[in-house]
Simulated assay, not measured.
Amino acid sequence: MEKYTKKTDRFDWTLTLLLFLFFLISCIAINSAQSTGQYGDRNFMIMQVVWYVVGAIIITITIFFDSFQLKRLAWILYGFGLLLLIAVYVAPESIAPYRNGAKSWFVIPAIGQIQPSEFVKVFLILALSRVITSHHEKYIVKSLKTDFGLLLKLGVTTAVPVGLIMLQPDLGTALVILSILTGIILVSGISWKLILPIYGTGASLGGFIIYLVIIRPELLEKYLKVQTYQFNRIYSWLDPYTYASGSSYHLVKSLSAIGSGLISGKGFRNSEVYVPESHTDFIFSVIGEEYGFIGGSIVISLFFLLIYHLIKTALDTNDSFNTYVCTGIISMITFHVFQNVGMTIQVLPITGIPLPFISYGGSSLMGNMFAMGLVYSIHYHHRNYMFSSRKSLSA
């Protein structure tokens, strides 16, 4: 027997509260960051409010698409994303200029910069979810052969956008996509007899390369033709104060800002340490300096609550496609938070990865809000059943 509920009861109010809190934190932090005077007359806080409004519109549109419709759109959006990545690569510099050594953005008059890879991440989540559900529908009886086939499909689907993104080049976004792939593979039902050797080999290879970078860089220079300057990101991460005037400048300033905030911080707009790009990738440095350990802990706790809510949503649905979509979003958000916060406190090397929902950036925020729109859709298009698990409205 079905227990019907009002539309308002099916709306995800918990997620709405969390996003509203992130909105407030973002506006406060960006307002403080832009007070340093390095940005002239540009008001990034007002622009962030505008991007949040656009994000809310994206959520409103996305919520009306159920899982069946999203499955049908998955490959269309994936293909559209690939076309955008190709376009930004071949476009003239007047349209897609190089910024910080990367050609990753379209410059649109009266709108600003749009980074296609931020949307491709979410398009890829839909495509990978479609690949897994279609594979399982085709192969009811599982074997190592069918699992390897699925693994190959997922790898190829991911390799195409990763390759295009590395041409820009944008290592940070490529790492996010690989984290999405990893998370989805772990819940895809592929046998651990395949997963453990592959990921074990990958982890060992990565560790060995880092070892060579630190201990025997001359081998990489000789056999892989890697240039010495390309090691600087690792060196500056491990020993930032030696490279404080160069490649470690951002990290040293970030450590000084967060460390000076102590337990409770210096207060709103009382930042004293100049941190470049503090309104974007290093927004957590502003939070740490002005609100200290307490403020930073609150922000991280909110992200834990968000991830917990996404996990709960994934477990509540009995639609496998929705579960994979939630898993991909969880992997994406988790990696973003871990990497962004980690790089500001020297736990991880610096990459150009923003803090979700808080760092300034229209493309990043719209991409994340689209992902949240998918979660809203999953939550909305389900009804509660008295004597059974939740059922999809699209079933």
Rank of each mutant, 00 (worst) to 15 (best):
I165V: 12
L167E: 06
G172K: 03
T173R: 04
L175T: 14
V176Q: 09
S179R: 05
I180D: 10
G183R: 03
I185Q: 12
V187L: 14
S188L: 11
G189W: 02
G189E: 10
G189N: 04
I190E: 03
S191H: 04
S191T: 04
S191D: 11
W192Y: 12
I195N: 03
L196F: 07
L196W: 10
P197W: 03
Y199P: 01
G200D: 07
G202K: 02
L205E: 04
G207D: 01
F208N: 03
I210D: 05
I210R: 01
Y211S: 00
Y211E: 02
Y211H: 00
V213G: 02
I214Y: 03
I215G: 01
R216F: 07
L219P: 03
E221F: 07
E221R: 01
Y223C: 05
Y223N: 06
K225P: 01
T228K: 15
Y229C: 13
Q230V: 02
F231A: 11
N232Y: 09
R233N: 05
I234L: 14
W237P: 05
G246L: 14
G246K: 06
S247M: 15
S248N: 06
S248I: 12
H250F: 15
L251Y: 09
K253C: 06
S254M: 07
S256D: 09
S256G: 08
I258P: 07
G259H: 09
S260I: 10
S260R: 10
L262Y: 07
K266D: 02
F268V: 08
R269P: 07
N270S: 08
S271H: 12
Y274K: 10
E277L: 05
S278Y: 06
H279T: 06
D281T: 14
I283L: 06
V286D: 09
